[in-house]
Amino acid sequence: MNQADFVSLVMPFKDKVFRLAKRLLVSREEAEDATQEILLKLWNNSKKIGEYKNVEAFSMTMTKNFCLDRLKSKQASNLKIVHSNYTDDHTSLQKQVEAKDSVDWVSKIMEALPEQQKIIVQLRDIEAYDFSEIAEMLDMNETAVRVNLSRARKTIREKLTNTHQYGIK
Protein backbone atom coordinates (compact mmCIF):
# COMPACT_ATOMS: atom_id res chain seq x y z
CA MET A 1 0.00 0.00 0.00
CA ASN A 2 1.56 3.29 -1.03
CA GLN A 3 0.80 6.75 0.24
CA ALA A 4 -1.83 7.57 -2.38
CA ASP A 5 -3.75 4.35 -1.67
CA PHE A 6 -3.65 5.07 1.99
CA VAL A 7 -4.87 8.62 1.62
CA SER A 8 -7.77 7.56 -0.58
CA LEU A 9 -8.67 4.89 1.95
CA VAL A 10 -8.52 7.22 4.92
CA MET A 11 -9.95 10.33 3.25
CA PRO A 12 -13.65 9.40 3.61
CA PHE A 13 -13.53 9.03 7.36
CA LYS A 14 -10.74 11.21 8.65
CA ASP A 15 -13.22 13.99 9.39
CA LYS A 16 -15.36 11.55 11.33
CA VAL A 17 -12.35 10.54 13.38
CA PHE A 18 -11.61 14.18 14.02
CA ARG A 19 -15.17 15.00 15.03
CA LEU A 20 -15.38 12.08 17.39
CA ALA A 21 -12.08 13.08 18.92
CA LYS A 22 -13.29 16.64 19.28
CA ARG A 23 -16.54 15.47 20.83
CA LEU A 24 -14.61 13.62 23.50
CA LEU A 25 -11.62 15.88 23.98
CA VAL A 26 -13.50 19.16 23.40
CA SER A 27 -10.43 21.18 22.52
CA ARG A 28 -9.71 21.51 18.85
CA GLU A 29 -5.95 21.22 19.28
CA GLU A 30 -6.26 18.07 21.30
CA ALA A 31 -8.61 16.60 18.72
CA GLU A 32 -6.21 17.46 15.91
CA ASP A 33 -3.36 15.80 17.74
CA ALA A 34 -5.47 12.75 18.40
CA THR A 35 -6.54 12.50 14.77
CA GLN A 36 -2.97 12.79 13.61
CA GLU A 37 -1.96 10.11 16.07
CA ILE A 38 -4.70 7.78 14.84
CA LEU A 39 -3.86 8.33 11.19
CA LEU A 40 -0.17 7.76 11.82
CA LYS A 41 -0.94 4.58 13.68
CA LEU A 42 -2.99 3.40 10.74
CA TRP A 43 -0.24 4.36 8.35
CA ASN A 44 2.37 2.48 10.33
CA ASN A 45 0.18 -0.57 10.20
CA SER A 46 -0.82 -0.06 6.60
CA LYS A 47 0.55 -3.47 5.70
CA LYS A 48 -1.97 -5.14 7.96
CA ILE A 49 -4.83 -2.87 6.98
CA GLY A 50 -6.04 -5.32 4.37
CA GLU A 51 -6.80 -7.82 7.09
CA TYR A 52 -9.43 -5.64 8.74
CA LYS A 53 -12.81 -6.09 7.20
CA ASN A 54 -13.99 -2.62 8.12
CA VAL A 55 -11.17 -0.11 8.36
CA GLU A 56 -13.51 2.74 9.13
CA ALA A 57 -15.18 0.99 12.07
CA PHE A 58 -11.78 -0.12 13.27
CA SER A 59 -10.49 3.44 13.13
CA MET A 60 -13.49 4.75 15.03
CA THR A 61 -12.95 2.18 17.75
CA MET A 62 -9.30 3.16 17.86
CA THR A 63 -10.25 6.82 18.14
CA LYS A 64 -12.69 6.15 20.93
CA ASN A 65 -10.15 4.15 22.91
CA PHE A 66 -7.38 6.63 22.27
CA CYS A 67 -9.48 9.60 23.41
CA LEU A 68 -10.76 7.84 26.50
CA ASP A 69 -7.20 6.90 27.43
CA ARG A 70 -6.18 10.47 26.86
CA LEU A 71 -8.95 11.76 29.10
CA LYS A 72 -8.04 9.28 31.77
CA SER A 73 -4.38 10.30 31.73
CA LYS A 74 -5.35 13.97 31.82
CA GLN A 75 -7.55 13.41 34.80
CA ALA A 76 -4.92 11.35 36.53
CA SER A 77 -2.39 14.11 36.13
CA ASN A 78 -4.97 16.63 37.29
CA LEU A 79 -4.89 18.49 34.02
CA LYS A 80 -8.22 19.47 32.59
CA ILE A 81 -8.44 19.91 28.88
CA VAL A 82 -9.33 23.51 28.30
CA HIS A 83 -10.77 24.55 25.04
CA SER A 84 -10.43 28.00 23.63
CA ASN A 85 -12.58 27.69 20.53
CA TYR A 86 -15.95 28.92 21.71
CA THR A 87 -16.44 31.34 18.88
CA ASP A 88 -15.35 29.12 16.01
CA ASP A 89 -18.81 28.37 14.59
CA HIS A 90 -18.69 30.60 11.56
CA THR A 91 -21.55 28.86 9.83
CA SER A 92 -24.02 29.51 12.56
CA LEU A 93 -22.71 33.01 12.99
CA GLN A 94 -23.44 33.82 9.40
CA LYS A 95 -26.71 31.95 9.11
CA GLN A 96 -28.80 32.44 12.18
CA VAL A 97 -27.43 34.77 14.76
CA GLU A 98 -30.51 34.41 16.93
CA ALA A 99 -30.31 30.62 16.84
CA LYS A 100 -26.64 30.57 17.60
CA ASP A 101 -27.00 30.66 21.32
CA SER A 102 -29.28 27.69 21.50
CA VAL A 103 -27.18 25.76 19.00
CA ASP A 104 -24.14 26.41 21.14
CA TRP A 105 -26.20 25.36 24.07
CA VAL A 106 -26.67 21.94 22.51
CA SER A 107 -22.95 21.47 22.36
CA LYS A 108 -22.70 22.33 26.04
CA ILE A 109 -25.48 19.93 26.89
CA MET A 110 -23.68 17.23 24.96
CA GLU A 111 -20.47 17.96 26.82
CA ALA A 112 -22.28 17.17 30.03
CA LEU A 113 -23.44 13.76 28.82
CA PRO A 114 -21.68 10.62 30.00
CA GLU A 115 -18.88 9.59 27.63
CA GLN A 116 -20.68 6.52 26.33
CA GLN A 117 -23.78 8.52 25.40
CA LYS A 118 -21.67 11.27 23.90
CA ILE A 119 -20.00 8.77 21.61
CA ILE A 120 -23.27 7.17 20.60
CA VAL A 121 -25.00 10.48 19.83
CA GLN A 122 -21.95 11.52 17.85
CA LEU A 123 -21.90 8.33 15.84
CA ARG A 124 -25.64 8.16 15.25
CA ASP A 125 -27.01 11.69 15.05
CA ILE A 126 -24.02 13.37 13.52
CA GLU A 127 -22.22 10.70 11.55
CA ALA A 128 -25.36 8.67 10.79
CA TYR A 129 -23.96 5.21 11.31
CA ASP A 130 -26.12 2.10 11.44
CA PHE A 131 -26.91 0.67 14.83
CA SER A 132 -25.07 -2.50 13.84
CA GLU A 133 -21.96 -0.48 12.96
CA ILE A 134 -22.08 1.46 16.20
CA ALA A 135 -22.52 -1.76 18.14
CA GLU A 136 -19.45 -3.15 16.39
CA MET A 137 -17.37 -0.04 17.02
CA LEU A 138 -18.22 0.13 20.69
CA ASP A 139 -18.29 -3.59 21.29
CA MET A 140 -21.84 -3.41 22.66
CA ASN A 141 -25.05 -5.03 21.57
CA GLU A 142 -27.57 -3.05 19.54
CA THR A 143 -30.17 -2.92 22.27
CA ALA A 144 -27.71 -1.32 24.67
CA VAL A 145 -26.81 1.20 21.99
CA ARG A 146 -30.47 2.05 21.47
CA VAL A 147 -31.11 2.40 25.19
CA ASN A 148 -28.14 4.71 25.63
CA LEU A 149 -29.09 6.74 22.58
CA SER A 150 -32.67 7.12 23.73
CA ARG A 151 -31.48 8.31 27.13
CA ALA A 152 -29.08 10.79 25.60
CA ARG A 153 -31.68 12.19 23.20
CA LYS A 154 -34.20 12.58 25.98
CA THR A 155 -31.67 14.32 28.18
CA ILE A 156 -30.79 16.77 25.41
CA ARG A 157 -34.47 17.36 24.65
CA GLU A 158 -35.26 17.94 28.30
CA LYS A 159 -32.45 20.38 28.95
CA LEU A 160 -33.18 22.14 25.71
CA THR A 161 -36.89 22.62 26.38
CA ASN A 162 -36.07 23.80 29.88
CA THR A 163 -33.71 26.47 28.64
CA HIS A 164 -36.04 27.28 25.81
CA GLN A 165 -38.90 27.97 28.16
CA TYR A 166 -36.53 29.67 30.54
CA GLY A 167 -35.58 31.98 27.75
CA ILE A 168 -39.21 32.78 27.01
CA LYS A 169 -40.55 33.18 30.47
Binding site: F18, L39, T91, S92, V103, W105
Partner: peptide, 25 residues
Protein backbone atom coordinates in the same frame (compact mmCIF):
# COMPACT_ATOMS: atom_id res chain seq x y z
CA UNK B 1 -41.41 21.69 17.80
CA UNK B 2 -39.29 24.81 17.97
CA UNK B 3 -37.39 23.37 20.92
CA UNK B 4 -35.95 20.58 18.76
CA UNK B 5 -34.66 22.93 16.14
CA UNK B 6 -31.29 23.77 17.71
CA UNK B 7 -30.66 20.12 18.36
CA UNK B 8 -30.96 19.06 14.74
CA UNK B 9 -29.30 22.17 13.50
CA UNK B 10 -26.41 21.48 15.77
CA UNK B 11 -26.15 17.93 14.47
CA UNK B 12 -26.14 19.06 10.86
CA UNK B 13 -23.64 21.76 11.57
CA UNK B 14 -21.30 19.54 13.52
CA UNK B 15 -21.05 17.30 10.52
CA UNK B 16 -19.54 20.11 8.49
CA UNK B 17 -16.51 20.35 10.67
CA UNK B 18 -13.43 19.06 8.93
CA UNK B 19 -9.99 17.96 9.78
CA UNK B 20 -7.79 20.38 7.92
CA UNK B 21 -4.36 19.61 9.24
CA UNK B 22 -1.93 17.66 7.13
CA UNK B 23 -0.62 14.46 8.48
CA UNK B 24 3.07 14.02 7.86
CA UNK B 25 3.06 10.60 6.30
Amino acid sequence: FEAYKPMFQYFSESKKEQYTKDVPL
